[in-house]
Nucleic acid binder design. Sequence first.
DNA 1: AAGCGTATCAACCGCCGGAAT
DNA 2: TATTCCGGCGGTTGATACGCT
Length: 307
Amino acid sequence: MGRPPCCDKIGIKKGPWTPEEDIILVSYIQEHGPGNWRSVPTNTGLLRCSKSCRLRWTNYLRPGIKRGNFTPHEEGMIIHLQALLGNKWAAIASYLPQRTDNDIKNYWNTHLKKKLKKLQSPGSENTAQMGSENSPTSATSYHLVSKNSFTDRPQIATSSSSLYASSAENISRLLEGWMRASSSSSSSKGFTTNSHTNNTSHGGDLEEEDEDLTRPEVAATDNNGVIPKEEYLDSILTFGSLMNGMESESCSGNNNKQKVNEGNDSDNPPPLSFLEKWLLDESAAQVEEEEGEDNQGAVMELPTIFS
DNA sequence: AAGCGTATCAACCGCCGGAAT
DNA sequence: TATTCCGGCGGTTGATACGCT
């Protein structure tokens, strides 16, 4: 009974994805749109199982993904949503369209859990309550009083500055070349641009600025044939656009875009609820907050509307 | 500089629910 | 209705980067 694991097949490759595989996958999805993952390995020749393809796409290659460290507002949202929903990372991610559930899950496990534990520890004035690991907390009122408590976050450099050590230097350079050559013309089309416009519709806060925040440490491509991760991703996506979109620009600008967007359907939040209204309000507040400069020491107090 | 411990995150594993047959 | 298939989700792991001694 039950079906065998899809990855049990002989010849299925595991482990980190190579740039070549990324290009193949992106090209294929740009042409056919996400979905029907079962057929992806077959049609692309990728020696990966369908799950692996889907995961790679949704967690890494999908356009509109914001990388780098989380903003205090995002942290607040995650904490609050976790309290409300429990470890429903996909649900939580739907409120943070630029973040993947995997990212949120990782961030929770590596940062927030500890942070809350700290705050929860005896003697601490800031008592942020946590429920059991897998269930929503009963107390959903958090007062993460001082924004300073977030300042010990690892700096951007930790994740986004890590270089994507390409296993195929040639591909990296090829991609770099593609990107440079097309940056002027493709800057207004293709995945990245698409995602930008796509995600600003529901509370996607300050993507442009956030990108700026995450990019400075990513200096220009170094001289060792290693490209920064973000630039690498841009390259992959641009490459995919060029591969599939060049010959039929209008097609890629419409049909494919739509298909790709379908892949983000899960990102489309349900109709506005009380929670969502609050989140959007918070988002707006966040914009003002960020505009006001980094306002160190400012109070970030989460509302207690759910208590 | 080397060794060691810790943090981070991409990717895998296994289960579940819904769709298809 | 029962069975199989597929996509999705959450938990976990392993490789690597990072920081400290």
